[in-house]
Design a protein around this nucleic acid. Structure first.
Length: 420
DNA sequence: TCTGGGGTCCTAGGACCC
DNA sequence: TCTGGGGTCCTAGGACCC
């Protein structure tokens, strides 16, 4: 029995999430905006057919949106994250051989279901997910993950059924001939340009190339893609691994000039990063912070800088990390610029269980590490940020905009859906 | 006026060692 | 004039993904 991957992708995921608790949105054009209401990051089919493009700045589409009465939402990640968990745990009921690839995608292995035709099995899964969670999905079937991605793309265009089987070699050949190289998973603008330059326009041409020739142009990753297009599986299902780095960064709601405001924002991002760190039971061996002005404002003076610090002991102590971040910030902050964004990355994470005995330095303060954990627990029980550090401030004048956010129906008691 | 956030992997080249 | 060679480790930067 040969290998069959199925890529399951939620259709217009964020837009679909908004519809679950607000059925009046059905059949209407809706878009969801990125943090700070900057860009359009999700569109319903109706919004897509109006010509609103993915990733485009909101303000560039504003007239189109108003003219067509498109409904606009700020992103509501608490809601999307919760719906995602429901979809993924529903999928897991069909097979343990599954990889959660992103918030709205998962790969399944369906080849072990002897006797059942994969197409009808995928159709069955699709109907059940829709019934259980309210989220419509598309399913692409193929012998490799790269081909399953291709199949999924076609499935999405099939209204009503949304399943496509690309296990047959003749169908693969016909399909790849029509697929531009830039639509292949793993090949984006830079690489497709290089491929065009050497005369390769579509996926079939790439499949027929000598893999080592492609390796010279696109590294081993490109070589792997050639094999995957041939139906030779090189990329298996991956286990969920703890993150190696954790980044927390956001644009400010307005341009910021004062050190105190940047400090306050950075302390908040550090707090969030530390929560994520402890959540995956890791400690960090260092931090990297950065600060920058808005590169799109050509008339403003531009400045961007970063700083790194390694700890003598791995830590997950929020107060130490905030303190260190603020010290680094003072090294790179300069007066006279209008800042747009800052961020902190926890780097070189290791498991909490890993203990390193350092000969010359004092052992880290275990009590402080515990304290951080207790703060997490209290915040988890009582709702977000009941307890926080004074350096995080209370004014938070730099906070991002999200005026158009829907209710957090599933994660906040005060925002439960009401039945009248 | 307004332009997201959070990740991973690979390679080239420098530093350093014997 | 001649001025080794080979190996490893680390980092920055560039590519990709959602």
């Amino acid at each position: 029995m040969s290998v069959i991957f199925s890529l399951v992708d939620c259709n217009n995921f964020y837009a679909s999430c908004e519809r679950i608790f607000n059925p009046s949105l059905d059949n209407k054009p809706i878009v969801v905006l990125s943090n700070n209401d900057g860009c359009i990051i999700a569109r319903s089919n109706e919004a897509k057919s109006l010509g609103i493009s993915m990733g485009a700045p909101y303000h560039e589409n504003e007239s189109l949106i108003k003219k067509n009465k498109v409904l606009v939402f700020s992103s509501n990640y608490q809601l999307y994250g919760d719906i995602s968990r429901r979809v993924m745990s529903s999928l897991a009921m069909f097979t343990p051989e599954m990889e959660v690839y992103s918030i709205d995608e998962a790969f399944l292995r369906l080849d072990k279901f002897y006797g059942q035709d994969p197409y009808s099995l995928a159709s069955d899964i699709r109907l059940k997910i829709l019934k259980w969670t309210g989220i419509p999905t598309s399913h692409g079937l193929a012998p490799t993950k790269t081909l399953a991605k291709v199949a999924n793309k076609i499935a999405k265009k099939k209204n009503g059924q949304n399943v496509f089987d690309l296990t047959n070699i003749d169908i693969q050949t016909k399909t790849l001939a029509k697929l531009p190289v830039e639509d292949i998973w793993g090949i984006s603008r830079g690489w497709s340009k290089r491929l065009h330059n050497i005369g390769i326009q579509n996926a079939l041409q790439l499949r027929e190339c000598d893999p080592s020739f492609i390796r010279n142009h696109l590294s081993v990753i490109g070589e792997r893609i050639v094999y995957e297009l041939r139906g030779v599986s090189c990329i298996g299902l991956e286990k969920v691994m703890p993150k190696k780095n954790i980044l927390s960064s956001k644009s400010f709601g307005k341009l910021v000039t004062e050190l105190e405001e940047v400090e306050e924002a950075l302390a908040n991002y550090a707090f969030r990063a530390c929560q994520k760190l402890r959540n995956q039971n890791s400690k960090t061996q260092g931090i990297y912070i950065f600060l920058k002005t808005n590169k799109y404002r050509k008339n403003d003076l531009q400045y961007s800088n970063s700083a790194t610090k390694e700890f003598s002991h791995p830590t997950s102590n929020t107060s130490l990390i905030i303190k260190t971040a603020k010290l680094l910030l003072r090294e790179i902050y300069q007066k006279g610029f209008k800042y747009q964004k800052c961020g902190i990355m926890l780097i070189n994470l290791i498991p909490s269980s890993y203990l390193q005995n350092h000969l010359f330095e004092q052992a880290p303060n275990q009590k402080k590490e515990y304290l951080s954990k207790i703060i997490d627990e209290i915040n988890h029980r009582t709702g977000n940020e009941s307890i926080f550090f004074a350096s995080q401030g209370i004014k938070r004048s730099w906070k991002m905009r999200c005026d158009k956010r829907s209710q957090r129906y599933t994660t906040q008691w005060e925002e439960l859906a009401k039945a009248y």
